[in-house]
């Protein structure tokens, strides 16, 4: 096969990897946001994202039956749709904090991990049971028009939208963390909780804001998952959860920038192993092997800080 000879083939695969990487990255950034600020692994992040996809679809169904999609101009109802999904995801984020993180503040770090895993099961099953025909695959409505820039299949409106949305969302998160007062408070808390409290930072409200922010981020991830694949099933969340978590760890769990590198790295490994003849069966396995090797050789992740234990 002409792997290198044909330029468009490689570019096509690069594009595949970048798109996949965008989705992994958003979930991974969610993970590292939670971990960075509160030192907890929120394992149901993938499920929150898929919940976002389903709430978009549900809202769309309601809008359509109510005739809103025909009545209002497209940008308006699109914004409303996103708004509904974002609010629902943010609410779920806060619920996650209140039900699975806050009760375990003083116990071992294992407890939030397990209780978010349990919450993930609950979210997944709730979608499966209470969404109409929830256990069947669901078609995501076509929110991004088909067609492409300059007639080039790779630059379809959808691909461009996904990349732009990811970029803008990440930019917004960084600005929020860097420039806003709340963002600074989050960073202070990430560095030293007790000191942050002494400095007069309201730990509770910072924690809740973190989860609102994380929920918003994951709702965008949910939108991208729906738009990119066009089809979702209620149990897809666990897959994105594991992949996102792996990406976050590879990048260095507490580092939001590392999550981007981790997400992209994981996606590239998967795509390029799939290209090899018969490699598709092993793509995920190789990605996880890379994670293991990485962990063992450089446990603090790509951008994580090396912690030196002092006695």
């Amino acid at each position: 096969m002409e792997l290198l000879g044909n330029g468009s083939f490689l570019i096509e695969q690069l594009m595949n990897a970048i798109m996949l990487g965008c989705i992994y990255t958003l979930v991974a950034v969610g993970f590292s946001l939670f971990f960075g600020v509160l030192d907890v692994v929120v394992f149901c992040s993938g499920d929150i994202a898929v919940f976002g996809t389903f709430s978009l679809m549900g809202a769309y169904m309601i809008f359509e039956t109510a005739g809103l999609t025909a009545m209002l101009p497209t940008p308006v109802w699109m914004m409303l749709l996103m708004g509904v999904a974002a609010i629902l995801c943010a609410a779920l984020g806060v619920f996650t904090y209140l039900s699975s993180i806050r009760p375990f503040e003083k116990s071992s770090s294992l407890m939030p991990l397990l209780s978010t895993i349990a919450l993930g099961v609950v979210i997944r099953e709730t979608i499966g049971l209470f969404f109409p025909l929830g256990r069947n695959p669901q078609r995501f409505p076509r929110l991004i028009p088909s067609g492409s820039f300059g007639g080039h299949a790779l630059l379809s409106y959808r691909n461009v939208t996904i990349i732009c949305v990811t970029f803008l969302v990440l930019l917004a998160v960084f600005f929020f963390l860097r420039k806003s007062k709340m963002g600074n408070a989050m960073q202070a808390m990430a560095q030293n909780k007790r000191l942050a409290a002494i400095a007069g930072i309201n730990i509770r409200s910072v924690a809740i804001t973190t989860f609102v922010l994380g929920g918003l981020l994951l709702s965008v991830a949910g939108f991208l998952i729906g738009a990119y694949y066009g089809t979702v099933r209620f149990d897809n969340g666990s897959l994105y959860g594991i992949k996102g978590f792996s990406a976050a760890v590879v990048g260095g769990l507490s580092n939001v920038y590392g999550a981007i590198i981790g997400g992209m790295l994981l996606a590239f490994i998967e795509v390029f192993v799939s290209i090899l003849p018969g490699g598709a069966a092993y793509a995920s396995a190789v990605a996880f092997i890379a994670v293991v090797i990485f962990m063992v050789a450089k446990p603090e992740g790509i951008l994580g800080e090396k912690t030196v234990e002092k006695v």
């Binding site: 971990f35 594991i242 978590f245 092997i289 962990m295």
Partner: peptide, 12 residues
């Protein structure tokens, strides 16, 4: 957590 992830990856 890192230990958890390594074993999780091994399981998968």
């Amino acid at each position: 957590y890192y230990l958890s992830l390594v074993t999780m990856a091994l399981q998968l």
